[in-house]
Design a protein around this nucleic acid. Structure first.
Lengths: 340, 340
DNA sequence: TATGAATGCTCATACGTATGAACGTGCAGC
DNA sequence: GCTGCACGTTCATACGTATGAGCATTCATA
């Protein structure tokens, strides 16, 4: 009941093991059709299947890509954080004939997952790995990079002294384009609604916003950009009485709060104030916000391609990639109406 | 930048490669603490990591479990078919320190996935595999079994000439208990609402239903059990005018139709007719049905345990397991009220 | 002192594959 | 008829690990 090896096939076909190897691994050059057919027949008859471990040992290739998340994948999938990424990852891997390894064995008792655990790193089982997770551990990332391990990270992660290859939504451009589209409608006075979250991803949004405001000569006096976070009553009062006709909010939650805050002051969206959101799925329950949508599935696919490019050609430079975000039109942006 | 091997560690520690092997693979017997410490220090210094491929080649063990679905996993996950199973699979694998391989590479152009593809079976990369899917291909299953490959299947799948080890919800008992609980409330005349689907899983439900009806001396004259499928107008008329006070429906969709059909006849659930459903999640949108819930997560966990038991002890007999279903109380079963 | 056993380590090998080098054959060119 | 060459195949080896067998050394026992 043992799996047949190349040497078994070879014996049956009356050739050497190396001839079999050449045929099954698709070498086309120097094998005449006749021999090839004889070998393939033997392969079929014995039900020969290449041994992945041996192949990997020899090759350092496995057609196996790792997926490492720093928390459990599936429990969170529904909450839409990993889910769409994985969709793209699986889809693309299937298309190009790679399998996926879900690295789950690295869980510690505290529920966190680590790559390095008593000095052992299972990741090297795969040809390369896609890392993802909000909770990505910078130290581990740095070590992985210094060890020369092949990986890409979904989402920006900056580590001093290491150049982590990331696949990142292009928030800068997206925020810029959102501002531009508001300007096109005639909005000249904007405000930016700041979440107070201090991550690269949000910094990018702010950069894009600021750049567009400056470039287009718009006006902005959002307190959020000067460091004070979030949505305060004073901020709302200022907005209600000020010249602003449009608000760019960092996320849906903020936007919802904004809606109620404005309602309390007798203002409505989009009649009195237009609102665009820098994060959303495009199909929030409740209101249809004009928003930026992270192309999660696309990012997953791109991550796989970036990884595979380097797996298949080790000379390839590890580079980060920006992925354009979609802008979804909703019902919360309209032409400005001069406030009286 | 190459990964250090045992021989590198050995050189540094001033011992032989085999001594290193013995230490890192946890042989306790014959290595004095002093040497062991020296070796472990060298391991740490070099950042040595065992090479999984080599280990597997030697051992035939990988601490790697396969997951093969006959359709893409993630796209369907939301629709709740695979999702909860995977939850349990991942959870349990993590607990016992195994990684998972998602076999995706076997997709064909028609969107179906096959295990065997031009005679090649990637599954043998893992120590064993969990197969799941409604679309499981019986032929492939049979071949896998005959090849002596280690796997378990989630859901019952009967193949002549092969004894497929399955992890299966115990529909028979669940259906029986549902009938019993109706009988306990005083229902004597039942009807069974047949989906027309001809699978083992549904056959089991019917068996359980029939057994309980017989055992408890109840009355049943459902047309569905005699071969005619589903919910017809005649059936509804018969039900409305007959002595039946409770219906057991095979799935939620049928039950919903039943509700509207009854409403059209001026009857409501549960006041006039009690309804219990032989499938559901317990939190359907809309109505809270009394129903049977497949313990999907639990099944995933059990599948992993069954698989690992055989991986770690090849003499273990492959056996199928029944997993008890939960019965969830809803608002669609009440005491019978005699029809006038 | 000689004998045996226990201890601590190394030697040698096998796992299944891929591949550069080498080998033989047949055939064209001079 | 010898040289060179293309073709088809085999030889030999390396990949990194685990492990049975073997070799010293120490120590207790007779």
């Amino acid at each position: 009941m043992k799996a047949p090896r190349q040497s078994d096939v070879a014996r049956l076909a009356g050739v050497s093991q190396s001839a079999v190897s050449r045929v099954v691994s698709g070498e086309v050059d120097r094998i005449p059709v006749e021999t090839r057919d004889r070998i393939l027949a033997a392969v079929k008859e014995l039900g020969y299947v290449p041994n992945a471990a041996a192949r990997n040992l020899r090759n350092k290739r496995n057609r196996l890509l790792g997926v490492h998340t720093f928390e459990a994948v599936f429990p969170h999938a529904r909450e839409d954080f990993y889910f769409e990424f994985l969709l793209g990852i699986e889809e693309r891997a299937e298309e190009i004939g790679y399998d996926l390894v879900l690295f789950t064995s690295t869980g510690t008792s505290d529920g966190r997952r680590r790559i390095y655990r008593d000095g052992t790193n299972r990741l090297n089982l795969a040809d390369g790995t896609v890392l993802l997770g909000a909770a990505t551990d910078r130290e581990e990332l740095a070590r992985l990079w210094h060890d020369g391990y092949l990986f890409v990270h979904i989402g920006r992660r900056e580590v001093p002294g290491a150049e982590i290859p990331c696949i990142v939504p292009d928030y800068v451009t997206a925020a810029d384009r959102i501002v531009a589209s508001l300007a096109e409608r005639g909005h000249r006075h904007l405000a930016y609604l700041h979440s107070g979250i201090d991550q690269e991803a949000y910094a990018d949004r702010r950069t894009g916003y600021r750049a567009a405001v400056e470039r287009l000569g718009l006006h902005d006096r959002s307190p959020g950009l000067r460091g004070e976070p979030g949505l305060t009553e004073e901020w709302l009062d200022e907005l209600a009485s000020g010249p602003e006709t449009a608000v760019v909010a960092e996320n849906i939650g903020l936007a919802e709060h904004l809606r109620s805050g404005l309602a309390a002051r007798g203002l409505s969206i989009p009649e009195d104030v237009s609102v665009a959101v820098l994060e959303g799925s495009g199909d929030e329950p409740g209101h249809r916000w004009d928003c930026l949508v992270i192309p999660r599935k696309e990012i997953g696919r791109i991550a796989i391609d970036a990884l595979v490019a380097r797996v298949e050609n080790p000379d390839e430079e590890p580079v980060s990639q920006l992925v354009a975000c979609d802008l979804v039109a909703g019902e919360t942006v309209a032409d400005p109406r001069p406030k009286e």
